[in-house]
Amino acid sequence: MKASTDYYHENSMFHASATEVMGTRLDMVILGIDRAKGDLLWQQCRERLEQLEAVGSKFKADSETTAVNRAEPLSIVTVSPLFGQLLTEAIGFRQPTRGCFDVTLGSCSAVEFRSPVELVVPASGLTIDLGGYLKGRAVDDMMAVLKSGGVTDAFIDFGGSSIMGIGSHPAGKGWPVSVTDPYSRRVLATFSLRDASLSTSGNTPAYNGHIVNPATGRIVSGNRLSAIVAREALVAEVLSTTWLVADEQLRREILPQFENVYNEFVYN
């Protein structure tokens, strides 16, 4: 992670910016605090991000996810408590999303823990990809850091696709953001985020073929975009991925399983 910070005295505005974090960039804007406090909170956020990356990155050769993905079928792998916690939480979304959100990419039917830190690898082996989960978890965790630091107004943008508005922009209520069609650049919708999170998911001209339907193992292709506004970034994140995979009927069935979803749409 490469990071830098700025401070704007006249607005009491702190801005932290990072690249190479979970494969993307992160911006955090906090209002109404002094520089030292901003640095402190940002430091805490960074530590959390680093912990999450060490556990969850499927690309880092030394991450726990990599180790688990390489483990022999039926072996028992010792994992950190954090890994166990994250995996359990991530897998927990499989049922309410009717299998549409599956961090195991359909590679197993159940993950069994012999103890909180001992994972039993199923006979089929495991392929875990926490990619669609981790950013949402990270945004919620950063929000918790900010809230516990007494922050009332802030804006977090993780990779342009996971966004959280806490409190309000100084000139209005909430934080207004718009979603645009990456192909036509037309504005598709505008949302006001006030203690709410927006997650968008979909193919862009630049990045295609990263979403896999776990049921079929096939890549979701074409110009399809989903947007979810929810109180929790993680819920928004999970549902925006789910919305790309699930059809209309299934989406109606899944929606009531989640609380505090304020807005949702999918655009073809």
């Binding site: 704007y8 953001v177 927006l198």
Partner: peptide, 26 residues
């Protein structure tokens, strides 16, 4: 990819309240 946040920072500094094109490469 970077200028959305720049827009947001200047909207705070200039006290302008308008939607920030946040999501996607837009």
């Amino acid at each position: 990819s970077r200028s959305g946040i720049k827009q947001l920072l200047s909207s705070v500094r200039e006290s302008v309240f308008s939607a920030i094109p946040a999501a996607g490469p837009s």
